[in-house]
Design a protein around this nucleic acid. Structure first.
Length: 590
RNA sequence: CGGGGUGUAGCUUAGCCUGGUAGAGCGCCUGGUUUGGGACCAGGAGGUCGCAGGUUCGAAUCCUGUCGCCCCGACCA
């Protein structure tokens, strides 16, 4: 048991000016963290306790899912990363030492990076230590500090430069086994989020810079989340914005027979979809082809969408480029023959078609039929453009951004959108890293194969904040039992009375024997202050010992989730505490 | 990195437009009265007004630069 007067819980009446969202304000007001600098936080005792609780539950569930705990350095030689597949993409977000070549008495210092995740460390380790199928599968995990040079840290622990993450890496002999490991981790995640008392949903996700074949994000629905979840309640479909697709193009769509003769017409000054929609042209946006030029690893490629659709840039990741970005007008003109606004992909109109490494079309352009697009001549467009007849398409794909209301691919029912906080992510990586680092094993036929990997992350600090975001009211935090820094708060209104303190210690002891963590508020504060702090800090079960109650022979018992106060006779109080703790535990672990 | 905002006591802030003794609330210290939902009275400590230049007789206030922080965008656990 801890005594508030001896402990350190600096609560604040007012929210700090730099906190915007409820969970961030409460994190600071309830005395869980203090900011050192943008994206860097000190965990105060209470915050640390919650981090430790979450970490421990996470550890238990990951172990249950097959994980073996170890701990890797936070600082890595840049060399490890240079040998890996994502150095170019990842170096942007890493903190790096700038001592390379600087000396300090030596002719050359190696460059170091602070690890944002550890594929680049675990894979070489496994390469040297595991060589036989007999030693597989293995799933290694750690819980520790990660570093990311976030362009814009924000929302307290939600997006920090230094943060605590559980990261796990699975190694299997083949795809089937890798999928088993993946599903075991998915189940472990679900168990973890359930135990800590928050609602998190698994949604299909893009693999992003991690690479890999498929992936789920674990999202906590919240207004302030920075990701959109596209979902349909009834069908169970759920995907993040980057991955989400819809059944907007019917599976049995037959491309229309080409209509009309391709024809150029003058459109002076028209460089936007909207301008072409307006009189005198009056071409509806869904009858236009939008042509975008991107640079993929230094080479230009085109993406064609309907005029009414938006590009979902992350979906370009499926094209296999390591790095891509929108091309600049200077890069576009020599290739296409015109500036942005007059571009098109009609055969024969592209100035240097050979320079394009691909023309990638969104499936939905097949709905356009007889459409209009740029003529690759400034001030001119083409009409009666037909997909099959006129466009030289390298590959069709899903590149458009899904909108709410479009039909779900599973059920055809309208999709909905809500915001969420990404608290965890699981990837089936495949052999991307194992091939690169030579992490191979020998099978029972003496054949050598790359290990099939998966990687898994849970942002512990972010999860802590997501718990607060999901579990609070106007008065403060309302901790779920298993996440709470303390389970029971014994509020002693008259700590100067020895009999009050004696009783408090006795009750605290009873609660501890029942398995609860107990905090005794023995401060010489007025009752109002104590009650306000109790609500702010959000301990699930509050026992109040007051001078008046003592005379009546009762102790008050109150749950943070309810306004009801039970006046319990002293003779019964210990049994009631034991029962209450047992009940809360069984509910939380059901 | 682009756009917007902001920096005054430990915290929340007024003052800045229109230059002239830096103010309040919370918190803190002392004493007293209080004591079941953030008490009251009296007294007190605490501020190079982010930093550096400049304009001016005089700068928190005007100008320039710079740094930090916050918000919106791209990225992510």
């Amino acid at each position: 048991m801890k005594f508030w007067s001896q402990y350190f819980i600096p609560t604040l009446k007012e929210s700090p000016a730099d906190a915007e969202i409820a969970s961030h304000k409460l994190l600071v007001r309830a005395g869980l963290v203090r900011k050192l600098s943008g994206g860097l936080y000190t965990y105060l005792p209470l915050g640390l306790r919650v981090m430790q609780k979450l970490s421990q539950i996470c550890r238990e569930e990951i172990e249950r899912g097959g994980g073996i705990e170890l701990s890797m350095p936070h600082m890595h030689p840049a060399e490890n990363w240079e040998q890996g597949p994502r150095w170019a993409a990842a170096r942007e977000i890493m903190f790096r030492t700038d001592t390379a070549g600087a000396g300090r008495g030596r002719s050359k210092e190696p460059e170091f990076v602070l690890g944002p995740t550890h594929e680049e460390v675990i894979t070489p380790l496994v390469k040297t230590e595991i060589t036989s199928y007999r030693d597989l599968p293995k799933n290694f995990f750690q819980i520790g500090t990660k570093f990311r040079n976030e362009i814009r840290p924000r929302y307290g622990l939600m997006r920090a430069r230094e943060f605590v993450m559980m990261d796990a890496y699975s190694f299997d002999v083949d795809d089937d086994h890798a999928i088993k490991s993946y599903l075991a981790m998915k189940a472990a995640y679900e168990a973890f989020f359930k135990r800590i008392g928050i609602h998190a949903i698994a949604v299909e996700a893009d693999t992003g810079v991690m690479g890999g074949s498929f992936s789920h994000e674990f999202m906590v629905p919240a207004e302030i989340g920075d990701d959109d979840v596209i979902y349909n309640e009834a069908s169970g479909y759920a995907a993040n914005r980057e991955k989400a697709t819809s059944a907007i193009v019917p599976g049995d769509l037959r491309d229309a027979t080409p209509e009309g003769v391709l024809e150029e017409f003058a459109t002076p000054g028209v460089v936007t979809i909207a301008a072409l929609e307006a009189a005198p042209y009056s071409v509806a946006a869904d009858k236009q082809f939008k042509t975008l030029i991107y640079m993929g690893d230094g080479q230009p490629f085109a993406v064609i969408l309907r005029g009414c659709d938006e590009l979902e840039e992350a979906k370009l990741g499926s094209l296999g480029f390591t790095l891509f970005r929108p091309a600049t007008p200077d890069e576009i003109e020599p290739v296409m023959g015109a500036k942005p606004g007059s571009l098109g992909a009609v055969k024969g109109t592209i100035k240097d078609a050979a320079a394009l490494v691909g023309v990638f079309a969104d499936h939905a352009i097949r709905l356009v039929g007889n459409g209009t697009t740029g003529a690759n001549k400034d001030g001119f467009h083409l009409r009666h453009v037909n997909v099959v007849r006129d466009l030289a398409i390298t590959k069709f794909g899903d590149f458009r951004r899904v909108r709410a209301g479009e039909p779900d691919v599973k059920s055809g029912q309208p999709l909905q959108v809500k915001r969420g906080i990404e608290v965890g992510h699981i990837f089936k990586l495949g052999t991307k890293y194992s091939e690169k680092y030579g992490a191979v094993f020998t099978d029972d036929q003496k054949q050598s194969h790359p290990m099939v990997m998966g990687c898994y992350g849970i942002g512990v600090g972010r999860t802590l904040q997501a718990v607060i975001e999901q579990c609070h009211d106007a008065d403060g935090i309302v901790w779920p039992w298993n996440s709470a820094p303390f389970h029971v708060l014994v509020c002693v209104l008259d700590p100067q009375l020895p009999e009050a303190m004696d009783l408090a210690k006795k009750l605290a002891g009873a609660a501890e024997r029942a398995g609860a963590d107990v905090l005794i508020d023995d401060r010489a504060e007025r009752p109002g202050v104590k009650f306000k702090d109790a609500d702010l800090v959000g301990v699930p079960l509050r026992l109040t010992i007051g001078g008046k109650g003592l005379k009546e022979g009762i102790v008050e018992l109150k749950w943070r989730t309810s306004k009801d106060v039970a006046k319990v006779p002293l003779a019964e109080i210990e049994a009631r505490i034991t029962a209450a703790v047992a009940e809360a535990q069984s509910k939380a672990n059901a």
